[in-house]
């Protein structure tokens, strides 16, 4: 399975078949999730209608971490087995993951203003997400920094793996840092467990975000494969022109 789809042509055929299904599933899940989240679920007794921000905020935060994990795994696979598609998958994931991180930060900020009274708090979660955003930016910058695209993808793969080691460290350290400076000033999800009427739309939205990611990933990988083909053809044409 794993090495079967190392062949880009085979992968492209496979992707062409499943892409419309994933697209349909994404649209359906978003429709259900948004209906449940925005209309069918109750408003929070304390936070009122703003609690609905959660249905976008929490899934995008999940996806931000999920994408980085996926990217790091792809980078490892690309470095170890020189799997051609893993490289493309990591490259295709980075901007999507960065967008999810950005979305999580922006929605969190919009949610924070009415709830905490501030757009930004130097809380553990916020800080670690910001660092994650910088790691994505560093990955993308390094990927584009070389004239030879092969060099860029290798260098950035190493960076993604190094950054992955750092993610749990960052999480722990800012927890520490936070308890020392401003303990328990932040609304936490602990305490009462989430009620099913709020949990189920959240889970539907989480799955919808995941299928959306897969959909975009397929589009981006197909685009990368095509771009590589175009580049190869151009190179061949250029070398033929020289002779």
């Amino acid at each position: 399975m794993f090495h079967r789809f190392a062949n880009p042509a085979r992968f492209l055929r496979f992707a062409a078949v499943i892409q419309p299904w994933i697209a349909g599933l994404t649209v359906l899940l978003f429709a259900v999730g948004l209906y449940l989240g925005l209309l069918a679920s109750p408003a929070d007794y304390q936070q009122g209608e703003t609690v609905r921000m959660m249905y976008v905020h929490v899934p995008s935060a999940w996806m931000a971490l999920f994408c980085y994990t996926g990217m790091a795994i792809s980078c490892g696979v690309a470095l170890i087995w020189k799997h051609p598609l893993a490289d493309l998958a990591a490259k295709a994931t980075a901007p999507v993951g960065a967008s999810f991180t950005f979305l999580a930060l922006v929605t969190g900020s919009l949610w924070g203003k009415p709830m905490w009274g501030a757009w930004w708090v130097w809380d553990a979660r916020l800080t670690s997400m910001l660092v994650l955003f910088f790691l994505y930016l560093g990955y993308m910058a390094l990927n584009n920094a070389f004239d030879d695209p092969g060099r860029g993808s290798k260098a950035s793969s190493i960076l993604a793996l190094v950054g992955f080691v750092n993610v749990p460290i960052i999480k722990f350290s800012v927890d520490w840092w936070n308890t020392l400076h401003q303990p328990a000033s932040v609304v936490k999800m602990g305490g009462p467990a989430i009620h099913a009427s709020i949990l189920s739309p959240l889970l539907v939205m989480g799955v919808a975000f995941t299928t959306y990611y897969l959909w975009v990933l397929l589009i981006r990988i197909r685009r990368e494969v095509t771009a590589n083909k175009v580049r190869a053809l151009q190179m061949r044409q250029a070398s033929r022109g020289e002779q």
């Binding site: 910088f134 930016l137 960076l159 190094v162 950054g163 750092n166 960052i170 350290s173 800012v174 520490w176």
Partner: peptide, 12 residues
């Protein structure tokens, strides 16, 4: 851009 995010734990 690459190194500063990784320095944050040491700084904290």
């Amino acid at each position: 851009l690459l190194v500063l995010p990784l320095y944050i734990p040491v700084l904290i």
